[in-house]
Design a protein around this nucleic acid. Structure first.
Lengths: 338, 338
DNA sequence: CGTACCAACTGAAACGATTCAAAGACATAT
DNA sequence: ATATGTCTTTGAATCGTTTCAGTTGGTACG
């Protein structure tokens, strides 16, 4: 029926030139009160809605920012995404969220997609090695900010949290409450996880007689955690660590589920457990979960800020912001045993 | 520097007409092997990337589907969103997710935005009264499928879960384990919540001597739940209900946190607690949470299917799919007291 | 009265893809 | 040699905006 009215239809209806209609929309001050009213009436009458594709084509750039995360189901990322959306909205932009699911090919797919959309910029929590890709993107006018991963400052901007420091904090805490046989659970192929592991190893190295084994998990989800937990249960009391540090809270909750299933293993008495991210659900776990808190809102907000700086500088100036994580102690690591 | 090469640049570089380049991209069979190779080489050499805005402008429609949810932070919605994304990807479309935060104006904002983008279609979990709006959208060629809310079939397609049935299931279960003083927690201004409440009231009406009070929560989050929980704690044992039905799991987890803080209230002995949605975290709660499970993947997948049907029928045929929820019993409502 | 200036408005030219009628090239049949 | 058909390629027209040089009409000033 009416399908969609174009700016030309509005112009005809209001008996003005198309340029005038465009001005009403974009530079209201350039238009006299009388004509403005006439045009606005016609717009309402015809139900005109701007065609963003046409505007974008002419403008050469969209009002869209691409965001690629490792897992939207992870509250850490959804929290960062929300903060980024809010910050972008304040600047009149929209954030498009893509989920790479820690898969390099899906990541590449979204990068292609965003490039086709000529996004204003890209926020990326990378899986694979993207340095080269980011360079070409910048050459083509798409600034990129690395999210949750430190970047070389003269190469690319980034917002991250000190993962090694966080790892150290977590392990140090487990050692402080008297544990000596630690286990680290995570997928060290993910850079953030590798850093957390490194920090934890440093803490372990500082304490005589302490050691830590590394349990590679298949993914970073509750399910993956449950699998690791089951493996631990099967080992029997003698072979089990007395403290477990999981590289994120989902894993930790999964491990906790498995351990708690066997009523004989007590948390924290037999096994202390600490996670990472401090998601909302950590506090309401079977045993409230100790964790490392990351400033998610600040991450999202700052990422947008840096993107803005990149745009304004034409992609020449880069800045790397690093936030400091914070230890949150709850029951899962309460008290000391010794 | 190179900024972005256009199809025209590629044509010049490969010494062919622009139409040929377009054909290589869209109808490879129409082009001879030799020219195809030449063109593909030029594309690679110039680093050409299709401009989606231009394509869309010409095509009149985008390959984008809009999805507006009440809260992306809620695992229920993020799970539905992910399923929808996967289903859309299989059809070569992308899903754009907007978060209304249960705010009618933000909802309207996203609807405007998506309309400007000329999305293929809209999946909407509505806050306000959108019937009129949906009608105009369809007139303009944007089919809409209601998500998580039943629609009048000769008006609009929808995918939903039988909320009243779910509410009945939950309350009936509380009554079955011997509870008589129920409380319902939620914001009945949200339609889904109102239906769950209605179902619960039906169940209560069937049992002699049972009653249920309604506690209005400010929102549907863990935080809102904690507030309600604190209020319950302050009442003292005599004034407290012996069973609480929360309209979603986030609320239930919040209530649980508050109640568990006071070590004197035992779950389920003193207060039985049941949530709704069966999110992943329900099982790992302090006291594993009973809940009503909704088939989130099926919801997301079916929503995309229905959208497709709408498109193919030109928005004339509508279908309303209703799924049946399922009771999941865990410790928070275990055993009987009487 | 002539000149300058200003605000308001006009309308054609981009933007970069897709589409499609038409032309070209070549082989086969008559 | 001509006609017919198939396969490939061409390039202008189109989509709906924004932009910008240029026109119009009116007011102010000397």
């Amino acid at each position: 029926m009416s399908q969609t009215a174009s700016i030309k239809d509005v112009a005809t209806h209001a008996k003005v030139a198309v340029g005038t209609v465009s001005n009403v929309l974009n530079y209201p001050d350039r238009v006299s009160q009388r004509t403005k009213e006439r045009v606005l009436n016609s717009i309402a009458e015809l139900g005109f809605v701007r065609n963003d594709a046409a505007r974008q084509l002419r403008a050469g750039q969209s009002r869209t920012i691409g965001l690629i995360v490792l897992d939207v189901g992870n509250p850490f990322f959804s929290s960062v995404a929300r903060a980024a959306e809010d910050a972008a909205a304040a600047l009149g932009s929209v954030v498009l969220v893509g989920d790479s699911g820690q898969d390099a090919s899906r990541e590449a797919h979204y990068m292609d997609l965003f490039q086709e959309q000529r996004v204003q910029g890209l926020l990326l929590s990378p899986v694979g090695d993207v340095a080269e890709r980011i360079r070409t993107l910048r050459e083509r006018g798409v600034p990129t900010v690395l999210l949750d991963q430190l970047a070389d400052e003269d190469h690319c901007s980034s917002v991250s949290v000190d993962d090694e420091g966080g790892g150290y904090l977590a392990a140090r805490h487990l050692l402080d409450i008297g544990r000596r046989r630690l286990a680290f659970v995570g997928s060290p192929t993910i850079r953030q996880v590798a850093h957390r592991l490194k920090g934890a190893q440093r803490a372990v190295g500082e304490v005589e007689g302490a050691d830590m084994e590394v349990l590679d998990s298949a993914g970073q989800t509750v399910l993956a955690g449950r699998q690791v937990g089951n493996a631990l249960v099967e080992r029997g009391p003698a072979g089990r660590p007395d403290a477990v540090f999981c590289s994120n809270d989902l894993l930790a909750l999964g491990v906790m589920q498995s351990l708690a299933m066997l009523r004989t293993i007590r948390i924290p008495e037999d096994v202390a457990l600490i996670g990472y991210d401090d998601i909302d659900f950590a506090i309401s776990a079977v045993v409230p979960l100790s964790s490392i808190r990351q400033p998610t809102e600040a991450l999202g907000r700052t990422a947008i800020e840096l993107l803005n700086e990149e745009q304004e500088s034409g992609g020449t100036k880069h800045r790397a912001v690093v936030f400091t994580p914070e230890l949150v102690v709850r029951e899962s690591t309460a008290g000391s045993r010794s």
